[in-house]
Design a protein around this nucleic acid. Structure first.
Lengths: 140, 140
DNA sequence: CTAGGATCTAGATTCGACTCTAGGTCAAGC
DNA sequence: GCTTGACCTAGAGTCGAATCTAGATCCTAG
């Protein structure tokens, strides 16, 4: 399946994921990894391709606003293995709903901001056409 | 223009905006109001309709992720009055761009989440059809 | 042999945005 | 007069998510 067992140091994983090494260790403490991290004889962490992919998933969940405790819960479910798919689904559906709500709120905000941008563009266009000094109107 | 000078106590403004009274006082300290707040003879804050509307705008900016310092900056520009419309526009455009970026990122996240939800729905549908016990596959 | 860079651990610190506490004042109703 | 509830100030505390510090160890190249 996999071509090479492409193990990584924490620095390499940091490069690849964009998470700082601090954050990688922090996430580990927070229980956000599927397995205990392997170590080199010298004690350095060794990550697998699978770890990297799992973290990539977690980063998406974080980026969409899932709090770390929820990510930990999800991680634990996956760690337990087959049998709790319904729970995982429920968790993901809940989160998806929060994301869609967030999206629609953000869109409403964007509308207002765009409206304001348009108003200022108007004002400035009229001002530079030297029609009159810009009036404050009810512009805020 | 306005029918009645509809002044409010902090409690009423809190009800109306959904911000806690703590937060209203906090925002005031943070310089997020256009004018020094008027007071009753007894020292209680008295807010006008205009204050409420301004705060509503600020709430939209906050909800779309603008940090308080940026909101303060914008507030200061508006407080200075006519003449800095170009700056206000720049600030709003910057923010709008951040919001659109955030929207597209959130949409990418949503796609992945929806994909995963779909996968789990499949698995569970097949499982409940008793075709076979759900296999872990590469499902994470 | 040694200097430099990446790692390690445990724990402290930062940051943004609230949120709450303590100890008071004020106004209305009984 | 007295209670009750909303309000006041200054300042402390909380929370989530990192982020950084100190002091030690481990490898590699010169």
């Amino acid at each position: 399946m996999s071509e090479i067992a492409h193990d990584m140091t924490i620095g390499q994983l940091s490069q690849r994921t964009g998470l700082s090494v601090h954050t990688l260790r922090f996430y580990e403490r927070e229980g956000i990894l599927l397995h205990p991290v392997r170590r080199t004889p010298g004690g350095s962490r060794l990550y697998s391709e699978e770890d990297a992919q799992w973290l990539t998933t977690c980063i998406v969940l974080r980026a969409s606003g899932m709090p770390l405790p929820a990510i930990r819960t999800y991680t634990e479910l996956v760690r337990q293995g087959t049998g709790n798919e319904a729970e995982r689904l429920a968790l993901l559906r809940d989160h998806r709903e929060r994301v869609t709500r967030q999206l629609s709120e953000l869109n409403r905000c964007l509308d207002l901001i765009t409206y304001k941008v348009g108003r200022y563009e108007d004002i400035l266009a009229r001002a530079s056409a030297a029609c009159w000094p810009p009036v404050e109107e009810d512009l805020r």
